[in-house]
Design a protein around this nucleic acid. Sequence first.
DNA 1: CCAAATGTACGACGATTATCGTAATTGACA
DNA 2: TGTCAATTACGATAATCGTCGTACATTTGG
Lengths: 127, 127
Amino acid sequence: MSKQQTIKATESELEILNILWTEGPSTVRAVHEKLAETKDTGYTTTLKQMQVMLEKGLLSRDASTKTHVYTAAVNKEQAQGQMLQRMIETMFNGSAMQMVMQALGSHKTSKAEQELIREYLAKKTKK
Amino acid sequence: MSKQQTIKATESELEILNILWTEGPSTVRAVHEKLAETKDTGYTTTLKQMQVMLEKGLLSRDASTKTHVYTAAVNKEQAQGQMLQRMIETMFNGSAMQMVMQALGSHKTSKAEQELIREYLAKKTKK
DNA sequence: CCAAATGTACGACGATTATCGTAATTGACA
DNA sequence: TGTCAATTACGATAATCGTCGTACATTTGG
């Protein structure tokens, strides 16, 4: 069991990881098509990125058929937690609350979202 | 008022920005000393980074005296908001709640912190 | 007034990123 | 079974990052 010390990924890599996390094991073409919805880069770019990510241990793949199938090799929750933690440390002086407040205060977070968060916390408190 | 389109900063730059945000206008030496508490790089490295950040418009400076004084040129709340938003979009499928849940679920977030967040939200709800 | 000491400027270097062109491979099917 | 369209492999390139050595500039204390 290769314990992944610290997960380090760039913005682009995170995008790819997220696609794999939500879509499950996918081909390069599938990932690329998903990416193409928001950005405009060539197929080989995506391919290369995923090959590099494989090298780094961020992805794994099944190469038994012509069209390889890639899978996220890092745990979603763990990766998210680490990213968040890093952000909290470098930008919010280590305070998760400051970060949550910023997230809730932002106009980009909808009222509905805020309401959901409150409910979640209420439930968590009550338990 | 030069509208900063999108604030883009690396991890290192964020560290420097955060120091300036909390300490206020500072000299390179002051920033470097603060940085030295956690990392171990040379003075000129910090200097160069800050010069690059000046170039990029992330910092401004008063060079009227020998020892220049640098100031964060980007708004703290705006920068934090953008970073958060980007993270929410690329890693949490656009859901702030998913992010908050992850942050609260992490064992790195202390009970005390969680309690504070609950209080904050309770107050916000009551109002 | 001049020599340390303290700062800044400049540029270089290796590593990594994002991007892509082109070559090699392979599997399906006519 | 040979061809062709799709896919992967293999660099190459330009940009950015983090790092620092070294040269140049400027105070300031003796």
